[in-house]
Each structure stands twice: as structure tokens, then as C-alpha cells.
């Protein structure tokens, strides 16, 4: 792990949050920024995403867990600040958006941004999978977790525990 520059680290978190319109939309940008610098690993991303899924509140709080794993309590607090600031823009945004929301360029931009988030996020999932080893057993666990979460009846924590038990049995 390389030494973290707090200011740059905070800026990266803030930037990622500003350019995402959902809780996990900041994953690709952060992965892209932090990993090449040696400030985080794919593994830490996967771990914090898992913690974010089981803790209360918005799943976007995953980044607080990433902050803690990579930079301790200061990291967690910086992450909290970074996710709180961008949504504040909604107060001024409400009026402006009411006036421009019907413009096709705006509608198209919002859709295109969402699609690009999906595209880059799928690459993130691929990298996380690679970091854990791409093989038949992990593929089956992925499909199982996907299938179980598709039912919407099984709590995320249960799906993660099932994955963990399979991991222990295989390991």
C-alpha cells in the first residue's frame, strides 16, 4: 500500500459521488482512481460492497466501509462527507430541472449517463470476479446469488452467508 494523500483521496471520493446518480454509481470511478495508485485493492472494493449491503441505510454507504478499510477512521469520515455534499445540490436543482427536464438533450443525457454507469459497472464486477479467481465454482456462486436476489424474498445478508458457507466448504 502506498501512502495516501488525504486531499487527493477526498477529492477522488467527492468527484466519484458528484458523477454518480445512485449509491453504487461511484464504484467505477473510484476503482479507476484508487487502484492504480495502490491506495485500494479490488478485494477491498468487494468487501466494502458486501458490508454496504448488510448495513442499514442507503447501499451507497458502502464507500464509508471502503474509506475505513483503506484509510481508517479518517477515510470513513471523509467518505461520509464526500457522499453528503453532492446531494445538497438538489435544493437549487429542483427549480432548474423543472424547466429543462423535457428537453430531449437533457433526457438523452440522463439516459446515456445511466447506461455508461451500467457499462463501466459491469467491467468493475468482472475485475472483482477476476481478483477472486475466475473458475466454475465462483461462476456457480455468482449465478446462485443472482438467482436468489432476483426472487427479492431473500435478505441480502442471507445470500452473503450462503456464499460464505459455500466458500468454507470448498476452501
Amino acid at each position: 500500500m502506498n501512502e495516501i494523500d488525504a486531499l487527493v483521496y477526498f477529492f477522488m471520493m467527492l468527484k466519484a459521488s458528484f458523477f454518480s446518480t445512485s449509491g453504487t454509481g461511484n464504484v467505477p470511478s473510484l476503482l479507476n482512481d484508487l487502484i492504480p495508485l495502490g491506495w485500494a485493492t479490488e478485494r477491498q472494493f468487494a468487501e466494502s460492497l458486501a458490508v454496504g449491503q448488510i448495513s442499514p441505510g442507503p447501499s451507497g454507504l458502502w464507500v464509508i466501509s471502503l474509506g475505513y478499510l483503506t484509510y481508517g477512521l479518517p477515510g470513513a469520515l471523509m467518505a461520509t462527507a464526500a457522499i453528503t455534499i453532492p446531494p445538497l445540490t438538489i435544493i437549487g436543482f429542483d427549480k432548474i430541472y423543472q424547466n429543462i427536464k423535457d428537453h430531449p438533450a437533457v433526457q438523452g443525457f440522463v439516459t446515456g449517463l445511466g447506461l455508461a454507469v451500467i457499462g463501466t459497472f459491469s467491467v468493475v464486477l468482472w475485475r472483482i470476479w477476476q481478483s477472486n479467481g475466475v473458475n466454475i465454482s465462483s461462476l456457480l456462486i455468482i449465478l446462485l446469488a443472482f438467482g436468489l436476489s432476483l426472487t427479492k424474498k431473500i435478505p441480502v445478508i442471507v445470500i452473503l452467508i450462503i456464499g460464505g458457507i459455500i466458500g468454507v466448504l470448498l476452501g
Partner: peptide, 19 residues
């Protein structure tokens, strides 16, 4: 560590649903 080898692919599966 062993459990994580199962938990991490599970987060990928949940992420797929999110996508």
C-alpha cells in the same frame, strides 16, 4: 478468508441484479 472466497462472488451476483 475461506468464507470470503464465497462471499465475493456473491457480491458480484448481487451486482449483476443491480445492473
Amino acid at each position: 478468508q475461506a468464507a470470503l472466497h464465497g462471499v465475493i462472488p456473491s457480491t458480484v451476483g448481487i451486482g449483476l441484479l443491480l445492473i
